[in-house]
Design a protein around this nucleic acid. Structure first.
Lengths: 225, 225
DNA sequence: CGCTAATTTGATCAGACTCAAGTGAAGTGG
DNA sequence: CCACTTCACTTGAGTCTGATCAAATTAGCG
Protein backbone atom coordinates (compact mmCIF):
# COMPACT_ATOMS: atom_id res chain seq x y z
CA UNK A 1 0.00 0.00 0.00
CA UNK A 2 2.20 2.76 -1.26
CA UNK A 3 -0.40 5.41 -0.64
CA UNK A 4 -0.38 4.55 2.95
CA UNK A 5 3.40 4.38 3.03
CA UNK A 6 3.67 7.87 1.65
CA UNK A 7 1.01 9.04 3.97
CA UNK A 8 2.66 7.71 7.09
CA UNK A 9 6.00 9.02 5.90
CA UNK A 10 4.46 12.44 5.59
CA UNK A 11 2.96 12.11 9.02
CA UNK A 12 6.41 11.51 10.43
CA UNK A 13 7.18 15.16 9.81
CA UNK A 14 6.85 17.24 13.01
CA UNK A 15 3.22 18.30 13.32
CA UNK A 16 2.82 19.08 17.00
CA UNK A 17 2.01 22.76 16.65
CA UNK A 18 -0.03 22.09 13.57
CA UNK A 19 -2.42 24.98 13.10
CA UNK A 20 -4.60 25.54 10.08
CA UNK A 21 -3.22 28.99 9.39
CA UNK A 22 -3.75 29.59 5.70
CA UNK A 23 -1.68 26.94 4.00
CA UNK A 24 1.16 25.26 5.74
CA UNK A 25 3.16 22.67 3.97
CA UNK A 26 5.98 20.24 4.57
CA UNK A 27 7.35 18.38 1.63
CA UNK A 28 9.95 15.68 1.31
CA UNK A 29 11.72 16.26 -2.00
CA UNK A 30 12.53 12.63 -2.75
CA UNK A 31 8.97 11.23 -2.69
CA UNK A 32 7.16 14.44 -3.47
CA UNK A 33 4.98 13.64 -0.48
CA UNK A 34 3.70 16.46 1.62
CA UNK A 35 1.25 17.27 4.36
CA UNK A 36 -0.69 20.51 4.15
CA UNK A 37 -3.44 22.19 6.02
CA UNK A 38 -6.03 24.68 4.92
CA UNK A 39 -8.53 27.00 6.54
CA UNK A 40 -12.21 26.58 5.86
CA UNK A 41 -13.08 27.77 2.35
CA UNK A 42 -9.44 27.76 1.26
CA UNK A 43 -8.67 26.37 -2.15
CA UNK A 44 -6.65 23.15 -2.16
CA UNK A 45 -6.27 23.19 -5.90
CA UNK A 46 -7.97 25.32 -8.52
CA UNK A 47 -9.70 24.72 -11.81
CA UNK A 48 -7.05 25.20 -14.51
CA UNK A 49 -4.06 24.49 -12.29
CA UNK A 50 -1.68 21.79 -13.48
CA UNK A 51 -2.74 18.43 -12.09
CA UNK A 52 -0.29 15.75 -11.06
CA UNK A 53 -0.81 15.23 -7.35
CA UNK A 54 -3.34 13.17 -5.53
CA UNK A 55 -4.61 13.98 -2.10
CA UNK A 56 -5.56 11.88 0.86
CA UNK A 57 -7.81 13.66 3.31
CA UNK A 58 -6.52 13.32 6.88
CA UNK A 59 -9.12 15.42 8.62
CA UNK A 60 -11.94 17.78 7.74
CA UNK A 61 -14.25 17.86 4.76
CA UNK A 62 -13.56 18.87 1.17
CA UNK A 63 -15.83 19.80 -1.72
CA UNK A 64 -15.00 19.29 -5.39
CA UNK A 65 -16.46 22.11 -7.49
CA UNK A 66 -16.90 23.05 -11.07
CA UNK A 67 -17.72 26.67 -11.84
CA UNK A 68 -19.51 28.18 -14.82
CA UNK A 69 -18.38 31.59 -16.00
CA UNK A 70 -21.54 33.24 -14.70
CA UNK A 71 -21.02 31.89 -11.20
CA UNK A 72 -23.23 28.82 -11.32
CA UNK A 73 -21.51 26.07 -9.41
CA UNK A 74 -21.84 22.31 -9.34
CA UNK A 75 -20.32 20.32 -6.52
CA UNK A 76 -19.52 16.86 -7.84
CA UNK A 77 -18.49 15.34 -4.52
CA UNK A 78 -17.84 15.84 -0.84
CA UNK A 79 -14.86 14.06 0.65
CA UNK A 80 -14.34 12.83 4.20
CA UNK A 81 -11.25 11.66 6.09
CA UNK A 82 -9.65 8.70 4.37
CA UNK A 83 -10.96 9.65 0.93
CA UNK A 84 -8.56 10.16 -1.94
CA UNK A 85 -9.23 12.82 -4.54
CA UNK A 86 -7.52 14.81 -7.27
CA UNK A 87 -7.38 12.19 -10.02
CA UNK A 88 -7.61 13.89 -13.40
CA UNK A 89 -7.62 12.67 -16.97
CA UNK A 90 -5.88 15.79 -18.25
CA UNK A 91 -2.82 17.82 -17.46
CA UNK A 92 -4.93 20.47 -15.84
CA UNK A 93 -7.48 20.27 -13.05
CA UNK A 94 -10.93 20.66 -14.48
CA UNK A 95 -12.31 21.01 -10.98
CA UNK A 96 -11.28 22.84 -7.87
CA UNK A 97 -11.05 21.34 -4.41
CA UNK A 98 -11.97 23.54 -1.47
CA UNK A 99 -11.92 23.07 2.26
CA UNK A 100 -15.42 22.96 3.73
CA UNK A 101 -13.98 22.85 7.24
CA UNK A 102 -10.35 23.29 8.32
CA UNK A 103 -8.55 20.48 6.59
CA UNK A 104 -5.35 18.44 6.62
CA UNK A 105 -4.36 16.60 3.46
CA UNK A 106 -1.46 14.39 2.54
CA UNK A 107 -0.54 14.67 -1.10
CA UNK A 108 2.02 13.23 -3.45
CA UNK A 109 3.02 13.36 -7.06
CA UNK A 110 1.07 10.97 -9.20
CA UNK A 111 3.73 10.91 -11.91
CA UNK A 112 5.67 8.59 -9.60
CA UNK A 113 2.71 6.33 -9.59
CA UNK A 114 1.07 5.99 -12.97
CA UNK A 115 3.66 3.49 -14.16
CA UNK A 116 1.51 0.84 -12.60
CA UNK A 117 3.96 -1.66 -11.26
CA UNK A 118 1.27 -3.31 -9.27
CA UNK A 119 -0.41 -6.39 -8.12
CA UNK A 120 -4.02 -5.73 -7.26
CA UNK A 121 -3.03 -5.31 -3.61
CA UNK A 122 -0.46 -2.67 -4.42
CA UNK A 123 -0.75 0.99 -5.11
CA UNK A 124 -1.95 0.39 -8.64
CA UNK A 125 -4.81 -1.73 -7.39
CA UNK A 126 -5.68 0.83 -4.75
CA UNK A 127 -5.73 3.66 -7.24
CA UNK A 128 -7.73 1.51 -9.63
CA UNK A 129 -10.36 0.87 -6.98
CA UNK A 130 -10.47 4.55 -6.08
CA UNK A 131 -10.97 5.55 -9.70
CA UNK A 132 -13.71 2.99 -10.28
CA UNK A 133 -15.40 3.96 -7.06
CA UNK A 134 -15.35 7.63 -8.03
CA UNK A 135 -16.77 6.73 -11.41
CA UNK A 136 -19.54 4.70 -9.86
CA UNK A 137 -20.43 7.50 -7.47
CA UNK A 138 -20.46 10.07 -10.24
CA UNK A 139 -22.83 7.89 -12.25
CA UNK A 140 -25.13 7.47 -9.28
CA UNK A 141 -25.08 11.23 -8.91
CA UNK A 142 -26.11 11.60 -12.56
CA UNK A 143 -29.29 9.68 -11.86
CA UNK A 144 -30.06 11.92 -8.92
CA UNK A 145 -29.49 15.14 -10.87
CA UNK A 146 -31.22 13.96 -13.99
CA UNK A 147 -34.25 12.17 -12.67
CA UNK A 148 -35.04 12.79 -9.00
CA UNK A 149 -37.20 15.56 -7.61
CA UNK A 150 -36.12 17.92 -4.85
CA UNK A 151 -37.50 15.86 -1.98
CA UNK A 152 -35.97 12.65 -3.27
CA UNK A 153 -32.64 14.41 -3.67
CA UNK A 154 -32.65 15.48 -0.04
CA UNK A 155 -33.61 12.01 1.09
CA UNK A 156 -30.77 10.54 -0.97
CA UNK A 157 -28.39 13.07 0.48
CA UNK A 158 -29.29 12.31 4.07
CA UNK A 159 -28.92 8.57 3.47
CA UNK A 160 -25.57 9.15 1.79
CA UNK A 161 -24.29 11.26 4.66
CA UNK A 162 -25.47 8.69 7.18
CA UNK A 163 -23.58 5.95 5.36
CA UNK A 164 -20.43 8.04 5.10
CA UNK A 165 -20.51 8.75 8.81
CA UNK A 166 -21.41 5.22 9.88
CA UNK A 167 -23.95 6.79 12.18
CA UNK A 168 -27.33 5.57 11.12
CA UNK A 169 -29.12 7.53 13.78
CA UNK A 170 -27.70 11.00 13.66
CA UNK A 171 -25.90 12.94 10.94
CA UNK A 172 -24.07 16.20 11.08
CA UNK A 173 -23.72 18.37 8.07
CA UNK A 174 -20.39 20.13 7.96
CA UNK A 175 -21.39 22.04 4.84
CA UNK A 176 -23.74 25.00 4.35
CA UNK A 177 -27.16 24.85 2.71
CA UNK A 178 -25.60 26.54 -0.32
CA UNK A 179 -23.07 23.70 -0.61
CA UNK A 180 -25.81 21.10 -0.33
CA UNK A 181 -27.81 22.97 -2.96
CA UNK A 182 -24.89 23.06 -5.38
CA UNK A 183 -24.32 19.37 -4.80
CA UNK A 184 -27.97 18.49 -5.43
CA UNK A 185 -28.58 20.91 -8.29
CA UNK A 186 -31.08 22.98 -6.29
CA UNK A 187 -31.20 26.38 -4.62
CA UNK A 188 -30.44 26.79 -0.95
CA UNK A 189 -34.03 27.87 -0.31
CA UNK A 190 -35.34 24.65 -1.81
CA UNK A 191 -32.91 22.63 0.30
CA UNK A 192 -34.25 24.35 3.40
CA UNK A 193 -37.85 23.80 2.38
CA UNK A 194 -37.37 20.14 1.56
CA UNK A 195 -35.67 19.56 4.90
CA UNK A 196 -38.69 21.17 6.52
CA UNK A 197 -40.89 18.82 4.53
CA UNK A 198 -38.91 15.75 5.59
CA UNK A 199 -39.25 16.96 9.14
CA UNK A 200 -42.98 17.45 8.73
CA UNK A 201 -43.29 13.91 7.38
CA UNK A 202 -41.60 12.66 10.53
CA UNK A 203 -38.54 11.33 8.72
CA UNK A 204 -35.96 13.59 10.31
CA UNK A 205 -35.55 15.93 13.23
CA UNK A 206 -33.40 19.06 13.12
CA UNK A 207 -31.56 19.16 16.38
CA UNK A 208 -29.86 22.21 14.91
CA UNK A 209 -29.37 23.39 11.35
CA UNK A 210 -26.23 21.31 10.98
CA UNK A 211 -27.21 18.35 13.11
CA UNK A 212 -29.95 16.01 11.97
CA UNK A 213 -31.56 12.96 13.52
CA UNK A 214 -32.78 10.32 11.12
CA UNK A 215 -36.06 9.06 12.53
CA UNK A 216 -36.88 6.66 9.72
CA UNK A 217 -33.89 5.62 7.68
CA UNK A 218 -35.83 2.89 5.89
CA UNK A 219 -38.37 5.39 4.60
CA UNK A 220 -35.61 7.75 3.51
CA UNK A 221 -33.92 4.94 1.61
CA UNK A 222 -37.24 4.03 0.05
CA UNK A 223 -37.64 7.61 -1.19
CA UNK A 224 -34.15 7.75 -2.60
CA UNK A 225 -34.86 4.52 -4.55
CA UNK B 1 -1.72 -2.75 -26.37
CA UNK B 2 -3.35 -5.93 -25.18
CA UNK B 3 -6.84 -4.61 -25.73
CA UNK B 4 -6.05 -4.30 -29.34
CA UNK B 5 -4.40 -7.69 -29.40
CA UNK B 6 -7.46 -9.32 -27.94
CA UNK B 7 -9.63 -7.37 -30.26
CA UNK B 8 -7.77 -8.39 -33.38
CA UNK B 9 -7.60 -11.96 -32.13
CA UNK B 10 -11.36 -11.90 -31.78
CA UNK B 11 -11.70 -10.48 -35.24
CA UNK B 12 -9.73 -13.41 -36.59
CA UNK B 13 -12.77 -15.57 -35.94
CA UNK B 14 -14.76 -16.13 -39.11
CA UNK B 15 -17.16 -13.24 -39.50
CA UNK B 16 -17.93 -13.26 -43.20
CA UNK B 17 -21.62 -14.01 -42.89
CA UNK B 18 -21.91 -11.82 -39.84
CA UNK B 19 -25.53 -10.70 -39.47
CA UNK B 20 -26.97 -8.89 -36.50
CA UNK B 21 -29.59 -11.53 -35.83
CA UNK B 22 -30.48 -11.22 -32.18
CA UNK B 23 -27.26 -12.03 -30.40
CA UNK B 24 -24.54 -13.96 -32.07
CA UNK B 25 -21.37 -14.77 -30.25
CA UNK B 26 -18.01 -16.41 -30.81
CA UNK B 27 -15.77 -16.91 -27.87
CA UNK B 28 -12.26 -18.22 -27.52
CA UNK B 29 -12.06 -20.06 -24.20
CA UNK B 30 -8.42 -19.32 -23.43
CA UNK B 31 -8.58 -15.51 -23.58
CA UNK B 32 -12.27 -15.13 -22.87
CA UNK B 33 -12.36 -12.80 -25.84
CA UNK B 34 -15.46 -12.75 -27.97
CA UNK B 35 -17.17 -10.83 -30.71
CA UNK B 36 -20.92 -10.36 -30.51
CA UNK B 37 -23.56 -8.49 -32.39
CA UNK B 38 -26.90 -7.13 -31.31
CA UNK B 39 -30.01 -5.76 -32.91
CA UNK B 40 -31.10 -2.22 -32.21
CA UNK B 41 -32.54 -1.93 -28.69
CA UNK B 42 -31.05 -5.26 -27.61
CA UNK B 43 -29.47 -5.42 -24.19
CA UNK B 44 -25.71 -5.98 -24.20
CA UNK B 45 -25.59 -6.35 -20.45
CA UNK B 46 -28.22 -5.67 -17.81
CA UNK B 47 -28.36 -3.86 -14.52
CA UNK B 48 -27.72 -6.47 -11.82
CA UNK B 49 -25.88 -8.94 -14.04
CA UNK B 50 -22.43 -10.02 -12.85
CA UNK B 51 -19.81 -7.68 -14.24
CA UNK B 52 -16.37 -8.84 -15.28
CA UNK B 53 -16.11 -8.16 -18.99
CA UNK B 54 -15.25 -5.00 -20.79
CA UNK B 55 -16.49 -4.16 -24.22
CA UNK B 56 -14.97 -2.42 -27.18
CA UNK B 57 -17.50 -1.09 -29.63
CA UNK B 58 -16.67 -2.12 -33.20
CA UNK B 59 -19.64 -0.58 -34.95
CA UNK B 60 -22.92 1.05 -34.07
CA UNK B 61 -23.94 3.15 -31.07
CA UNK B 62 -24.58 2.10 -27.47
CA UNK B 63 -26.34 3.78 -24.57
CA UNK B 64 -25.52 3.21 -20.91
CA UNK B 65 -28.69 3.39 -18.80
CA UNK B 66 -29.72 3.40 -15.21
CA UNK B 67 -33.36 2.68 -14.42
CA UNK B 68 -35.43 3.69 -11.43
CA UNK B 69 -38.08 1.27 -10.25
CA UNK B 70 -40.89 3.49 -11.52
CA UNK B 71 -39.45 3.58 -15.02
CA UNK B 72 -37.55 6.83 -14.90
CA UNK B 73 -34.35 6.39 -16.83
CA UNK B 74 -31.05 8.21 -16.91
CA UNK B 75 -28.61 7.64 -19.75
CA UNK B 76 -25.12 8.30 -18.45
CA UNK B 77 -23.32 7.98 -21.77
CA UNK B 78 -23.53 7.22 -25.44
CA UNK B 79 -20.71 5.22 -26.95
CA UNK B 80 -19.38 5.25 -30.50
CA UNK B 81 -17.08 2.89 -32.39
CA UNK B 82 -13.71 2.62 -30.68
CA UNK B 83 -15.10 3.41 -27.24
CA UNK B 84 -14.59 1.01 -24.38
CA UNK B 85 -17.30 0.54 -21.78
CA UNK B 86 -18.41 -1.84 -19.06
CA UNK B 87 -15.98 -0.90 -16.29
CA UNK B 88 -17.61 -1.38 -12.90
CA UNK B 89 -16.51 -0.90 -9.34
CA UNK B 90 -18.66 -3.75 -8.07
CA UNK B 91 -19.28 -7.38 -8.85
CA UNK B 92 -22.55 -6.52 -10.49
CA UNK B 93 -23.39 -4.10 -13.26
CA UNK B 94 -25.14 -1.09 -11.83
CA UNK B 95 -26.01 0.03 -15.34
CA UNK B 96 -27.26 -1.65 -18.44
CA UNK B 97 -25.82 -1.22 -21.92
CA UNK B 98 -28.20 -1.27 -24.85
CA UNK B 99 -27.75 -1.09 -28.59
CA UNK B 100 -29.07 2.15 -30.05
CA UNK B 101 -28.40 0.89 -33.55
CA UNK B 102 -27.36 -2.59 -34.65
CA UNK B 103 -24.04 -3.12 -32.93
CA UNK B 104 -20.90 -5.24 -32.96
CA UNK B 105 -18.80 -5.42 -29.81
CA UNK B 106 -15.63 -7.19 -28.90
CA UNK B 107 -15.51 -8.17 -25.24
CA UNK B 108 -13.15 -9.93 -22.91
CA UNK B 109 -12.83 -10.89 -19.31
CA UNK B 110 -11.40 -8.14 -17.18
CA UNK B 111 -10.08 -10.52 -14.52
CA UNK B 112 -7.35 -11.59 -16.93
CA UNK B 113 -6.39 -8.03 -17.28
CA UNK B 114 -6.59 -5.80 -14.26
CA UNK B 115 -3.55 -6.91 -12.30
CA UNK B 116 -1.44 -7.25 -15.41
CA UNK B 117 2.02 -5.96 -16.07
CA UNK B 118 1.56 -2.29 -16.48
CA UNK B 119 3.83 -0.01 -18.20
CA UNK B 120 1.84 3.10 -18.96
CA UNK B 121 1.87 2.09 -22.62
CA UNK B 122 0.44 -1.33 -21.85
CA UNK B 123 -3.05 -2.51 -21.30
CA UNK B 124 -3.11 -1.32 -17.71
CA UNK B 125 -2.19 2.17 -18.86
CA UNK B 126 -4.84 2.07 -21.54
CA UNK B 127 -7.50 0.96 -19.09
CA UNK B 128 -6.35 3.61 -16.66
CA UNK B 129 -6.77 6.33 -19.25
CA UNK B 130 -10.18 4.98 -20.20
CA UNK B 131 -11.32 5.00 -16.59
CA UNK B 132 -10.04 8.54 -15.99
CA UNK B 133 -11.63 9.72 -19.21
CA UNK B 134 -14.99 8.19 -18.24
CA UNK B 135 -14.73 9.85 -14.86
CA UNK B 136 -13.99 13.20 -16.39
CA UNK B 137 -16.91 12.91 -18.79
CA UNK B 138 -19.28 11.89 -16.02
CA UNK B 139 -18.24 14.93 -13.99
CA UNK B 140 -18.79 17.21 -16.96
CA UNK B 141 -22.21 15.65 -17.34
CA UNK B 142 -22.96 16.43 -13.68
CA UNK B 143 -22.50 20.13 -14.37
CA UNK B 144 -24.88 19.93 -17.31
CA UNK B 145 -27.58 18.11 -15.35
CA UNK B 146 -27.18 20.17 -12.22
CA UNK B 147 -26.79 23.67 -13.53
CA UNK B 148 -27.68 24.14 -17.19
CA UNK B 149 -31.10 25.00 -18.56
CA UNK B 150 -32.81 23.07 -21.33
CA UNK B 151 -31.51 25.19 -24.20
CA UNK B 152 -27.95 25.07 -22.92
CA UNK B 153 -28.20 21.31 -22.54
CA UNK B 154 -29.20 20.90 -26.15
CA UNK B 155 -26.41 23.21 -27.29
CA UNK B 156 -23.93 21.18 -25.24
CA UNK B 157 -25.28 17.98 -26.69
CA UNK B 158 -24.95 19.13 -30.28
CA UNK B 159 -21.39 20.30 -29.70
CA UNK B 160 -20.55 17.01 -28.03
CA UNK B 161 -21.98 14.98 -30.89
CA UNK B 162 -20.11 17.12 -33.41
CA UNK B 163 -16.84 16.49 -31.62
CA UNK B 164 -17.47 12.76 -31.38
CA UNK B 165 -18.15 12.58 -35.08
CA UNK B 166 -15.29 14.85 -36.14
CA UNK B 167 -17.77 16.54 -38.45
CA UNK B 168 -18.02 20.13 -37.36
CA UNK B 169 -20.56 21.01 -40.01
CA UNK B 170 -23.15 18.29 -39.87
CA UNK B 171 -24.20 15.85 -37.18
CA UNK B 172 -26.44 12.86 -37.35
CA UNK B 173 -28.27 11.62 -34.33
CA UNK B 174 -28.53 7.86 -34.24
CA UNK B 175 -30.67 7.99 -31.11
CA UNK B 176 -34.30 8.95 -30.58
CA UNK B 177 -35.57 12.11 -28.92
CA UNK B 178 -36.46 9.99 -25.91
CA UNK B 179 -32.85 8.83 -25.62
CA UNK B 180 -31.58 12.38 -25.90
CA UNK B 181 -34.09 13.44 -23.26
CA UNK B 182 -32.97 10.71 -20.86
CA UNK B 183 -29.37 11.70 -21.44
CA UNK B 184 -30.03 15.39 -20.80
CA UNK B 185 -32.47 14.95 -17.92
CA UNK B 186 -35.38 16.42 -19.89
CA UNK B 187 -38.56 15.13 -21.56
CA UNK B 188 -38.66 14.32 -25.23
CA UNK B 189 -41.11 17.18 -25.83
CA UNK B 190 -38.67 19.66 -24.33
CA UNK B 191 -35.86 18.28 -26.49
CA UNK B 192 -37.99 18.82 -29.56
CA UNK B 193 -38.95 22.34 -28.51
CA UNK B 194 -35.39 23.35 -27.72
CA UNK B 195 -34.16 22.06 -31.07
CA UNK B 196 -36.88 24.18 -32.67
CA UNK B 197 -35.60 27.13 -30.67
CA UNK B 198 -31.99 26.57 -31.74
CA UNK B 199 -33.25 26.41 -35.31
CA UNK B 200 -35.21 29.61 -34.86
CA UNK B 201 -32.09 31.33 -33.51
CA UNK B 202 -30.28 30.30 -36.66
CA UNK B 203 -27.80 28.04 -34.87
CA UNK B 204 -28.85 24.77 -36.48
CA UNK B 205 -30.83 23.47 -39.42
CA UNK B 206 -32.82 20.24 -39.31
CA UNK B 207 -32.19 18.54 -42.61
CA UNK B 208 -34.29 15.76 -41.13
CA UNK B 209 -35.17 14.80 -37.57
CA UNK B 210 -31.98 12.77 -37.22
CA UNK B 211 -29.67 14.88 -39.35
CA UNK B 212 -28.65 18.31 -38.17
CA UNK B 213 -26.49 21.01 -39.72
CA UNK B 214 -24.55 23.19 -37.30
CA UNK B 215 -24.75 26.69 -38.71
CA UNK B 216 -22.87 28.39 -35.89
CA UNK B 217 -20.70 26.06 -33.88
CA UNK B 218 -18.98 28.94 -32.08
CA UNK B 219 -22.30 30.24 -30.77
CA UNK B 220 -23.34 26.75 -29.69
CA UNK B 221 -20.07 26.33 -27.81
CA UNK B 222 -20.58 29.73 -26.24
CA UNK B 223 -24.01 28.66 -24.97
CA UNK B 224 -22.73 25.40 -23.60
CA UNK B 225 -20.05 27.31 -21.61
C1' DC C 1 -24.28 41.13 24.30
C1' DG C 2 -24.38 42.79 19.74
C1' DC C 3 -23.12 41.90 15.02
C1' DT C 4 -22.82 39.27 11.03
C1' DA C 5 -23.78 35.40 8.43
C1' DA C 6 -26.69 31.43 7.88
C1' DT C 7 -31.08 29.68 7.65
C1' DT C 8 -35.98 29.77 7.32
C1' DT C 9 -40.23 31.33 5.53
C1' DG C 10 -43.31 33.81 2.32
C1' DA C 11 -45.08 35.49 -2.24
C1' DT C 12 -44.64 35.46 -6.93
C1' DC C 13 -42.89 33.84 -11.27
C1' DA C 14 -41.06 31.02 -14.96
C1' DG C 15 -39.25 27.02 -17.08
C1' DA C 16 -40.04 22.54 -17.92
C1' DC C 17 -43.57 18.84 -17.44
C1' DT C 18 -47.96 16.68 -18.54
C1' DC C 19 -51.57 15.60 -21.35
C1' DA C 20 -53.42 15.82 -25.79
C1' DA C 21 -53.58 16.44 -30.74
C1' DG C 22 -51.68 16.79 -34.99
C1' DT C 23 -48.01 15.97 -38.55
C1' DG C 24 -44.75 13.34 -40.88
C1' DA C 25 -41.92 9.60 -42.38
C1' DA C 26 -40.92 4.64 -42.90
C1' DG C 27 -42.39 0.27 -43.77
C1' DT C 28 -46.06 -3.33 -44.96
C1' DG C 29 -49.09 -5.61 -47.59
C1' DG C 30 -52.53 -5.60 -50.99
C1' DC D 1 -47.26 1.46 -56.78
C1' DC D 2 -50.33 3.06 -53.56
C1' DA D 3 -53.27 2.80 -49.31
C1' DC D 4 -52.67 1.74 -44.62
C1' DT D 5 -50.48 1.16 -40.38
C1' DT D 6 -47.19 2.41 -37.16
C1' DC D 7 -43.95 4.85 -34.88
C1' DA D 8 -41.32 9.10 -34.19
C1' DC D 9 -41.54 13.64 -33.84
C1' DT D 10 -43.73 18.25 -33.39
C1' DT D 11 -46.80 21.53 -31.52
C1' DG D 12 -50.26 23.40 -28.30
C1' DA D 13 -52.62 24.43 -23.75
C1' DG D 14 -52.55 24.24 -19.06
C1' DT D 15 -50.25 22.93 -14.68
C1' DC D 16 -46.83 22.42 -11.26
C1' DT D 17 -42.31 22.21 -9.26
C1' DG D 18 -38.66 24.64 -8.05
C1' DA D 19 -36.48 29.40 -8.83
C1' DT D 20 -36.39 34.18 -7.65
C1' DC D 21 -36.90 38.03 -4.83
C1' DA D 22 -37.72 39.71 -0.32
C1' DA D 23 -38.20 39.61 4.59
C1' DA D 24 -37.95 37.62 9.06
C1' DT D 25 -35.60 34.69 12.30
C1' DT D 26 -31.87 32.27 14.29
C1' DA D 27 -27.26 31.07 15.34
C1' DG D 28 -22.60 31.61 15.85
C1' DC D 29 -18.87 34.25 17.23
C1' DG D 30 -16.00 37.90 18.71
Amino acid sequence: MLIHAVHTAALRAPTENFQPVGKEQRRSPETGASLSSFLANAEIFAQGEPAGRIYRLESGVVRICRLLSDGRRQISAFHFPGDVFGLEADEEHRFSAEAVTPVRVASFRIANVVPLHGTSDGLAGTLWRIALRSLSEAQEHLLLLGRQNALERLASFMVQMAKRQESLRTVDLPMSRADIADYLGLTLETVSRMLAQLKQHGLIRLRSARHVELLNLAALEEMSL
